[in-house]
Design a protein around this nucleic acid. Structure first.
Lengths: 239, 239
DNA sequence: CATTTTTCATTTGTCAGACATTTAAATGTC
DNA sequence: GACATTTAAATGTCTGACAAATGAAAAATG
């Protein structure tokens, strides 16, 4: 019944707690592997396995050489994006989340950014969005490239809110369903419709018309869900 | 210039890619450590370090014994919550995100759930919310307990949307700022105000009045930001 | 034959020691 | 002082060994 965790897991938890509680500061150097083996009374291999666990979570980085060692890593938003996206994508595929649910979550979160983005978007954000619209209009663009541009467009919209926490949270939601989106075959007509909505959204953001942005996003959400519904009907993921 | 990653990191990436791409199915057993050392032409220790990295991300679980080994783990939403919350909390503290920004993100996301929750909340969700309101009304409740109950209340609100992806995303946003909220000293009067808003929100959800829920959440957001602004002024985290 | 017990092979967890590699500081040389 | 060399400290990797868990096969038992 008892499920005693491995020593390496225990040690990892111990160090992780020290980092989360602020007992270990960002940039601070941990004791060397040899010292840690002494402190915890385990072998160096066990300590190393613990450190690898922490490294996998980007909590520490290691450096070789005389002044090397393991250092508490400053967790940056950009670093966390990747893990967030990977985790979200796995959650969707492994739990057979259907396209409709994923889509609903994505656009609900995105609409949450709309008012903030309407108020704060810079000329830079608008320029990025218009550039992506131009890319999306190119004939002969593959479905994958179209989706990638779509992600970039929405990313700019979210970043326009000027809140890094929101950008981080949305990264998972927006990018994780890209694989699902990629399964959609975009006809020329559906592309035209999406591009038209993208243009209207950009214009509304330009005019700082939050309500209109919100409405247009809702329309885009409904349209996208509609496009993807037969994809989801067939199978959640993976043939 | 070249930054050759460790062998264990390379091997971890290799196996991780196989999992993400669906090359390795959920529940499938990986080759034994000895076999993997042969396949990758490295020592068993190196393979083990790679496996520990994957275990830290909940991608695999290991089991001892004759039929044991490393198995591809089904990543569950509940498992991902914890990591999500830890990561979000670290991001906030390590990047000196101020209370206002975190609060803004949190309530923006929560308002995104309001329409869905108004439409779908069950009697169960409403009951949980009213139970937490009762707890919050108890005199002599510590600030920490008040905050914990606050989190539970909002958790129920979000869960009411009936979208696991939203619940997962929100878990990070709502729970990660609990440490920041805990720094606020809640006077009896501010508690009364918050409880009043919670009651009104619950009533509006009961009546399925999405617009009203949204407005009330906005009011709560403004009030909370106001309460916390002097806390943020002093210092981002940690005394 | 059915059931229980024992043995056994397999696999992960841990340890100890060795050597290779990297890195910066200390030292030596001009 | 500038440059080359040595050295010490640290992580990265390998090897071999044993402990512990665990399910399956073999053996003993009724």
């Amino acid at each position: 019944m008892k499920n005693a965790p491995d020593l390496s897991a225990q040690i990892a938890k111990s160090i992780r707690d020290a980092i989360v509680s602020g007992d270990l500061d960002v940039g601070e150097r941990l004791p060397s592997e040899a010292e840690l083996s002494d402190q915890f009374s385990v072998s160096r291999s066990t300590v190393r396995e613990a450190l690898k666990r922490l490294a996998a979570q980007s909590l520490i980085r290691t450096q070789r050489g005389a002044t090397g060692g393991a250092f508490v890593n400053r967790l940056r938003f950009e670093d966390a994006y990747g893990q967030q996206i990977t985790t979200s994508a796995l959650l969707l595929s492994m739990n057979a989340v259907d396209f409709t649910t994923a889509c609903e979550a994505r656009f609900a979160l995105e609409r949450a950014c709309a008012p903030l983005s309407a108020a704060r978007r810079t000329a830079d954000h608008l320029a990025t969005m218009r550039a992506e619209i131009t890319r999306q209009s190119q004939p002969g663009l593959s479905d994958e490239s179209f989706c990638a541009s779509d992600v970039a467009f929405h990313r700019a919209l979210v970043d326009g809110a000027g809140n890094p926490v929101l950008s981080y949270q949305l990264a998972g939601a927006v990018e994780a369903i890209e694989p699902l989106m990629n399964m959609i075959t975009f006809t020329a007509r559906s592309r035209d419709h999406i591009i038209k909505l993208h243009t209207q959204i950009t214009d509304a953001l330009d005019a700082q018309d939050a309500a209109k942005v919100s409405d247009l996003l809702q329309e885009l959400a409904d349209y996208t869900a509609d496009l993807g519904c037969h994809v989801a009907d067939q199978k959640p993921m993976k043939p």
